[in-house]
Amino acid sequence: MTRLFSYIIFFLLLIAAACSTSRQEEKLPILGERIVEGNDTIYHTIADFQFVDQDSNIVTQETFKDKIYVADFFFTSCRTICPIMKTQMLRVYDSIKSDPEVLLLSHTIDPEYDTVGLLHDYANRLGVSSDKWHFVTGNQEDIFNIAQTSYFATAMADNAEPDGFIHSGAFLLVDKERRIRGKYDGTKDEDVNRLLRDIARLKKEYAN
C-alpha cells in the first residue's frame, strides 16, 4: 500500500518536473514575415520612428534601446474601447513600474486633438510616470503608417465610426531586437494576464 503510494508520488513529481522544464525552454514566437538568407534569418522588426511624448521629449527607437516594451494605439477622446484599454494598460504599468527593463508606448491616432499638453494632462490624471509610460503624438500619417506596417495594428480615420477612427485594441509586446513577440487584446482581462506572463518569459530569455 505504502509502496503504491510512493510510486504515485514519484510519477506525479516526474510529470511536474517535465512540465516545468518544457515551459522554461519554450520561447515566445517571433511574429511577422521572415527572410532566410543563407544561414541568417531576418525577422520583421519595428521601423525607425520619431515622435514627441507628453513631456515634449523626442521619442525614437533609441528611447527603447535594450528595453522590452508594450505598444498600443488610442486617442484621449475615444469613448469606445480606449478607456478599457487604459484600465488594462494600467495593470501592466503597475506590474512593471519598478522594472528598468520594461517600458510602455501609447501612440495617439488623433494627434490634431491630442496635443502634447493634452497628453501631459491625461498621463498625469492616470497618475503614471513619463519615463516609464510614453504617450506620443506626431504626424498622423507616420502614426497610421507605423501602426499598420510595423505593429500590424489597425489604425485609420473612418467617419462611419462614432469617434471618427477605426483602430484595434491590440497590445504589442516588442523585444530588445525590435521584434514583435506577442499580440494581445487590450480590452480583455485574460489576454492581458497572458501578456504579463509573457513579459516575464521574455525577460528570462535575456537573463540567460
Partner: peptide, 15 residues
C-alpha cells in the same frame, strides 16, 4: 461602462 467601468470605479482622474 467603457468610461465609468463595469464596477463603477471610473478611471483614476480621467473619468
Amino acid at each position: 461602462s467603457n468610461c465609468h467601468q463595469r464596477n463603477g470605479t471610473g478611471l483614476r482622474q480621467v473619468y
